[in-house]
Design a protein around this nucleic acid. Structure first.
Lengths: 186, 186
DNA sequence: GTTATTTGTACGTTATATCGTCCTAAATAA
DNA sequence: TTATTTAGGACGATATAACGTACAAATAAC
């Protein structure tokens, strides 16, 4: 996922050029210094909410138009580029492959659990569901006071808005894919 | 119009309380310091775009949900509270009564022009239209190389995406109401 | 009632967003 | 060409966003 301020940068510049405005002109229209507009466009600055508002209002464009990412056809995410999150002294590792996005409303993780590794999660937001598939090793998962043991190829889906925990009770590395779905509010 | 960071503040706090989360919890979910979350909620801080993104993503709420202003039934704007914009050495004064909003897509001004006062405006964004009504005095307006003289009670509408200018050629103060409409992009 | 734990705020420090001025290169005019 | 404007970026100063720690009040545990 491209950094949000770079998306903003590109959108702002595109709008400015489409309207054939100079930095100076945009500066006047928005009440934001020319320098700042320039820095934002170059992705050197992550503007403040009030600045964002001034720009949107000054340019008469929607807030959304400035932060919208035109979905590219294809996006490749290499494991080596994903910032890994560690729990349980590094025995439980989370790789966020695809972060949450408000349109799709789910996120996708890969998780590795070393022998004996474990994680207890409190419930997520109400309505949340998890979809897990095991790709290697064995997974013991406890939710609603039920224990389930899954082996490679097995899957489970459950309401994740309550406490639950994952454990590798086997004797090899466990790998699994996890998709978390957050239904729309209201 | 309430300041944007106060709207954000209220929305954030409302969401947090609805989910029954502590500042600490929100901090963890979003990767933003507890202190910062607190300051934002109290309206003491105007968060950075990256911080806004972290909050939206961490809370799994839309960007829009955070900046949405539930339109109140009624809003009173007193002239004395409007920051006046002066041109032509103070002889041309602009009062922004209602600023641009992306849903309604227009803004409403009141303008006062002293005797002899004048303003030349370059064209606004393409498609823009102006709706003017004179409430006192006399207005001379030039657009598309045409001159129009309006007296109290008269109105004019014209495409404002080209240069135009206003002038008080009479001998009393001119007052007028102006609505500028910016059609949706595309 | 006392002790812990949790929750929100105050404070001091650092990072950085924002502004104004100056500078360089390109575009336009003379 | 030379002069003049314009457009974008560099630099230094200031305001403030963001962080970590410490504190006070409230809540929970005993």
């Amino acid at each position: 996922m491209e950094e949000i301020h770079l998306i903003f940068a590109r959108n702002l510049k595109a709008i400015r050029e489409k309207e054939k405005l100079s930095l100076e002109k945009v500066s006047q229209l928005c009440g934001v210094s020319k320098t700042m507009i320039g820095q934002i466009e170059r992705g050197e600055s992550s503007p403040t909410l009030t600045t964002i508002w001034k720009i949107a209002t000054g340019l008469k464009v929607s807030f959304t138009a400035l932060i919208h990412q035109p979905q590219s056809e294809t996006e490749v995410v290499l494991k080596k580029d994903i910032p890994v999150l560690s729990e349980d002294n590094g025995k439980y590792r989370v790789y966020p492959n695809f972060p949450f996005q408000e349109d799709s409303r789910f996120e996708i993780y890969t998780i590795e659990i070393d022998q004996g590794g474990q994680l207890s999660a409190e419930g997520h937001k109400e309505g949340t569901e998890e979809f897990i598939t095991v790709f290697a090793g064995e997974l013991m998962i406890c939710v609603n006071d039920h224990n389930y043991t899954l082996k490679s190829g097995d899957s489970i889906r459950f309401k994740a808005d309550r406490p639950h925990d994952y454990r590798n009770a086997g004797d090899t590395l466990t790998k699994l894919g996890m998709t978390i779905y957050y239904p729309n509010e209201r």
